[in-house]
Amino acid sequence: MRTMNWQKYALAFIITAAIFGTAFYIAYRLDRARIADIRATQEAISIDILSTETQFDLLGRLDCSAISENPVLSDELNSLAERLSIAEQNLGADDADVIALKKQYSLLQIKDYLLMQEISTKCKNVKPVFVLYFYSNKGDCPSCSRAGEVLTYLRQTYPDLRIYSFDYHLDLSALHTLESLRRVNGEKLPAFVINDRMPIYGFKSLDEMRTLIPELKNLATSSTALLNP
């Protein structure tokens, strides 16, 4: 019988396990860093919104020219949705931090939506186009990801288009209120509320969305926006 060096097996196993542990730890730390990054962005946006609200409260009026040039819904809030989606993919939709961030994000969107509605009433030069998009990632909405792609493309093409996306099943009372106010039926998702019109249900292609939002013709596209800053 040959002599066996079992220590070699134990050592190789320990080193391999250590490599696995290190990879797991690095991945975990980076995921947490993502959460921190999202949280910091949300806080910054929160301050932006609060600042506009405070300005409104203090003066009882708005500087409409300033608002049209510097919309409240910043690019940061636009990219936040993508970042949140990445965090959701990596950490899972059930992760407590992800849920908390989604709630905060949804609240920020609702506040921004309400504020922009108020601004559009007061300022004649601001005519935003809103799309409230309700989706579900519980497996009951197979076409939601495609609907999200169409909206992402529209947002990239029309930077002034204000799209607010909400996870219909998110346990947030303010969101439930918005859903009932807009009479959104959660059994027919995806749902779109364009400006103040009645909800539209089911997947819509890019061309169909363009037909449903005729106001898009009045919005600048990203290329024209770049050419005419």
Binding site: F20, F24, D37, R83, S205, D207
Partner: peptide, 24 residues
Amino acid sequence: LTQIPPHLSPVSNNLNWFYLNTTM
């Protein structure tokens, strides 16, 4: 189905560490 024409994602996304695949 979406009828979205082929296009590139914004370059800034590709360069940002946030969008890198950092799974175990």
